[in-house]
């Protein structure tokens, strides 16, 4: 079958960049997190609550989860684009993935913004 040229979608660069930037942030954050707990472990819930009450820590976590969700979105979409051929099925799996990731995002927001 000859490819029928439909031209370029003029997109893709943003997703590709996002994938890299979020990967770098997650790498740095995980490194920080591991070192932080290796140097000064927090072993009681009260101490964890104090640490987690800091705005900087919450923003750090918020960015981490935002990165993880965006990274998964780009990555999963990439897998679907490679392997899922029927257009309707690709649409459905992308929609399901987006919904699940959105629910996770709202859940993370609820945890990070909550007081408990």
């Amino acid at each position: 079958m000859r490819p029928r040229p439909t031209g370029s979608a003029h997109s893709g660069l943003g997703e590709w960049l996002l994938q890299r930037v979020t990967a770098v942030y997650m790498g740095v954050f995980v490194l920080y997190f591991v070192l932080r707990f290796a140097i000064a472990p927090i072993d009681v819930y009260a101490a964890w609550k104090v640490w987690f009450a800091s705005v900087a820590v919450r923003i750090g976590f918020a960015l981490f989860f935002a990165s993880a969700l965006l990274h998964s979105w780009v990555g999963m979409r990439s897998v679907f684009m490679d392997y899922v051929k029927p257009m309707w099925l690709r649409f459905v799996v992308q929609l399901v993935t987006a919904t699940v990731l959105l629910i996770l995002a709202l859940w993370v927001a609820q945890i990070l913004l909550g007081n408990t």
């Binding site: 031209g7 979608a9 893709g12 660069l13 990439s78 490679d82």
Partner: peptide
Amino acid sequence: LDDLEDPYRLFRCH
């Protein structure tokens, strides 16, 4: 570059 900037044409390269 316009022609290449496409999720399939270029960015399928992993």
